[in-house]
């Protein structure tokens, strides 16, 4: 589904990622971990074709050359990024945004009542007031409301590849549980691939990624199963950042 091979990413001539490899198959959940500034959010934005980055190498998504696509094309192929700090857009309501996005994806929203019913239903599931349908996108919302609002978009657009860039940052315990539960429900309903970027144990404990990768020195230095994440939470990145095959001796 997603294949990243030997990718180098530069921004203003500064190399952020180098020799970066990652492969994600349909329905797999991968966690990308690493210290602050390691470049985790960069890979998320590169995949969504943020034009600020100069990218060399090969990335294929659904067997198509992702580097030949623009941001709109990638999103229409099913990729969806939940940003660490979702953007506020004054004057554009959730309903207006989602109707435009769905129409642009060729999904007919002609039946306004059905569209509204579905949207209010997801609001309730996310414990958001139904007035959120007409609220401006992320505008004047708390950190928790913004993340839930992003999930509202997720449920409506039904992407097949999720990138969760620290979706758990700034959430209180109850909101985090609700967000995690909603993600699990989405996974069970649609089996998307997920790339989750996080520093928190709680989210990973609930999502249970099958693959965990450690990003350091501009590329993935170690990969493993969920036990690697547990090791990182227990011992920190120091002990866990020995490359595959390395030992303490």
């Amino acid at each position: 589904m997603l294949k990243i091979e030997n990718v180098t990413v530069k921004s203003e001539d500064k190399v952020i990622l180098e020799n970066f490899h990652l492969e994600i198959q349909p329905g797999e959940i991968h966690a990308l971990m690493g210290q602050n500034g390691a470049g985790k959010s960069t890979i998320a934005k590169v995949l969504l074709r943020d034009s600020h980055y100069d990218v060399q190498g090969m990335i294929s998504f659904h067997n198509k050359d992702l580097l030949a696509m623009n941001t709109t094309d990638v999103a229409r192929e099913g990729m969806f990024l939940v940003m660490q700090n979702p953007i506020e857009i004054a004057g554009v309501s959730n309903a207006e945004l989602l109707r435009t996005a769905l129409n642009d994806r060729g999904k007919n929203t002609g039946n306004i009542l059905e569209f509204h019913r579905e949207l209010t239903e997801y609001c309730k599931r996310l414990e958001l007031p139904t007035s959120f349908v007409h609220r401006d996108v992320n505008f004047n919302m708390s950190g928790g409301e913004k993340k839930k609002n992003e999930l509202l978009h997720l449920w409506m657009l039904k992407p097949n590849f999720l990138i969760l860039d620290e979706i758990d940052s700034g959430l209180d315990v109850d909101s985090l549980k609700l967000v995690a539960r909603s993600l699990v429900e989405y996974y069970e309903a649609y089996h998307p691939s997920i790339l989750v970027i996080t520093h928190q144990k709680t989210l990973l404990d609930i999502l249970k990624p099958q693959f965990v990768h450690v990003l350091k020195d501009k590329h993935i230095i170690k990969s493993g199963d969920f036990s690697l994440a547990e090791q990182i939470f227990q011992d920190g990145f120091g002990a866990s950042t020995m490359r595959n095959g390395e030992t303490n001796e």
Partner: peptide, 26 residues
């Protein structure tokens, strides 16, 4: 803002229009 809207699958021209109309509405 453009990147965010395009990341939801909206064409650049429509995304720009949404932002401009939103500015006036707000």
């Amino acid at each position: 803002e453009l990147f965010y809207l395009r990341g939801l699958g909206i064409e650049e021209e429509k995304a720009t229009q949404l932002i401009k109309d939103g500015f006036l509405k707000s």
